[in-house]
């Protein structure tokens, strides 16, 4: 059972990273970005095209370029929907479905429908602890997730930008009164989210491989993690991701892997009925 849980934790970290990107945007703009997966996938494709897939750049340079590209695209996307967002968050949310389709179309147009391999530049290492195999990939996922979560925490808890982000997410009126530019804060969350997306995608594709749909499909599970975390809580979604990873792995192993989607939906429904505000809402209940 230990190896099953262990693998679940590693996969769960990936769900957490995906969920964090969704929650960043939801917290500031109260909308869901359904294009998150497709845009992140597009970033991963750029890395592939710049490295093994053709240009032959060093991996780090390709990742840096992909991150810059993702930032530019997120600014563009926010520019497109900002006006819709002012009217209603639901309208903007629906617009992201269209943006997701455009991104997917771009992938198919530029890179075709083939499946590609895109690995992390890691050595073939594996060692064993307590009967569990641990590979360089597992270590990379865990440490990348840890670093991302710590960096995000520091930015949000320790910087002026973080103060602005938290104010906009909980009390937008207070933020406006203080002369904050709400759209700048939105932009911050979109840009951060896009970078989280690319990082998550790069960590996901070594197991799932890269096609026009893999990252989008993966983000559906990240969406479940975000829902279980309450959708407006960053720590909640991080924990939600690991919870989803472990429970899905246990379910697949002990019950039936082909019923995994059914299980995931049931899990989401159950968590919405028992913890409507997310798994951490009990503990922070006094936060009105």
């Amino acid at each position: 059972m230990l190896p099953v849980i262990w693998q679940g934790i590693v996969t769960g970290c990936l769900y957490s990273l995906g969920a964090l990107g969704l929650v960043m945007i939801f917290k500031s703009s109260k909308m869901v970005n359904f294009a998150h997966g497709a845009l992140a996938g597009y970033g991963a494709f750029s890395v592939h095209a710049l490295t093994a897939g053709g240009a032959g750049w060093p991996w780090l340079a390709a990742v840096a370029a992909a991150l810059l590209g993702a930032i530019a695209i997120s600014v563009l996307v926010y520019g497109l929907i900002a006006e819709l967002l002012q009217r209603a968050a639901t309208t903007a949310t629906i617009a992201t479905l269209g943006i997701g389709l455009i991104a997917q179309g771009m992938i198919l147009w530029q890179y075709g429908s083939n499946i590609f391999r895109l690995d992390l530049p890691l050595p073939h290492l594996s060692f064993s602890i307590l009967g569990m195999a641990l590979t360089a990939y597992d270590v990379a996922v865990l440490s990348a997730t840890f670093l991302v979560v710590v960096a995000l925490f520091l930015v949000i808890e320790r910087t002026r930008l973080g103060v602005a982000f938290r104010a906009v997410s909980t009390d937008p009126f207070a933020a406006r009164v203080c002369g904050l530019s709400i759209s700048r804060v939105h932009l911050f969350s979109w840009v951060t989210s896009s970078m989280l997306g690319v990082i998550a995608a790069l960590l996901i594709v070594p197991t799932t491989f890269l096609s026009s749909t893999t990252v989008t499909t993966f983000m559906l599970q990240a969406f479940a993690a975000a829902v279980i975390g309450g959708f407006d809580s960053l720590p909640g979604s991080a924990i939600g991701g690991i919870l989803v990873g472990v429970s899905c792995n246990l379910f697949s192993f002990y019950v039936a892997p082909e019923l995994l989607n059914t299980f995931l939906l049931t899990f989401m429904l159950a968590s919405l009925s028992f913890f409507p505000g997310g798994i951490l809402s009990q503990r922070l209940g006094s936060r009105v």
């Binding site: 197991t207 792995n249 892997p257």
Partner: peptide
């Protein structure tokens, strides 16, 4: 597994736990 599945680690855990020596995998190359 479902055709849309991208991660087969649970399936591998199962055949490994059952003590298989030989695994026939019938699915796509992905």
């Amino acid at each position: 597994f479902d055709v849309a599945t991208t991660d087969l680690s649970a399936q591998i855990q199962r055949v490994s736990a059952a003590g298989a020596e030989v695994v026939l995998l019938f699915g796509s190359n992905a």
